[in-house]
Amino acid sequence: MPTNIIIEAFVGGLLTGGIYGVIALGLTLIFGILRVINFAHGEFLMIGMYISYFSCTYLGINPYLSLLIMIPVVFVLGVLCELFLIKPVLNAPEDIQILLTFGLVLVFQNLALLFWTSDLRNLSTPLAFKLITIWGISLRLTTVIAFLASLLLSLAFYLFIKKTDFGKAIRACSEEREGALFSGLKLNRIYCLTFGIGITLSAIPGALILPNYSVSPFIGLSFTLPCFIIIVLGGLGSAPGALLGGIIVGVAESFGGLLLPGSMQKLVTYILFIAVVCLKPSGLFGAKVRD
């Protein structure tokens, strides 16, 4: 196998990995604060992609401008879901929480199927075919943009969590629920805003990769699954772990794609999940996975 193909696969995996990392960051944020594992994470991302797709095709705007429409819609959707569906089960056993978010998966997937059919939709913009070449490696321009934007997004998120008052409130809730309550923080408000932020954080990379990605009602799982691998690798609730885990999964999938025929590529993610959760249940950074 020629070296430059291997290098291209590696760099391609690296770029996808950074994008996965931000998606997983949203999942891990929600888990860290609400202590709820959101099975429907990929479905929110799918909805976000559809919103972007339709604002591009119907309004004729640039895919990146569609973020201005997508972000508020998805944020409100996340907040509403938390208020009406997640909040009632916040103190329920874990099984109930899993089943509830799994119910959400079914509802979102099949509503999407009903309204938008199972057709694969992709934006046929000329942007998608632009390649840039660095040191002899050709990369898709849109993937590079999505990667850089993801890095910026995680940096912005880091500053938000570290520097702003709301970020401090979020951290306080994650570290000491009762203590935060005693110091007058409104937990319910923090929970629903956190859920909204987590969902939006994950939906943004989805919209960014839209120019060279086809959206269909069933793509949710292909993002949820890597996210779960990532948070196990990186440790639940760990932000740098999410990014590093994302890169590991991205590169592994990319090499899997190189070695296996198209219809069998998904095997890599499935096998990786089983291997990772079995062999590394405590995460790369040693954070403990909650039982």
């Binding site: 089943l99 799994f102 998966v105 079914l106 509802v107 509503l111 009903l114």
Partner: peptide
């Protein structure tokens, strides 16, 4: 879809 609603 109905399963999902029932589940929730």
């Amino acid at each position: 879809l109905v399963y999902g609603v029932f589940l929730i």
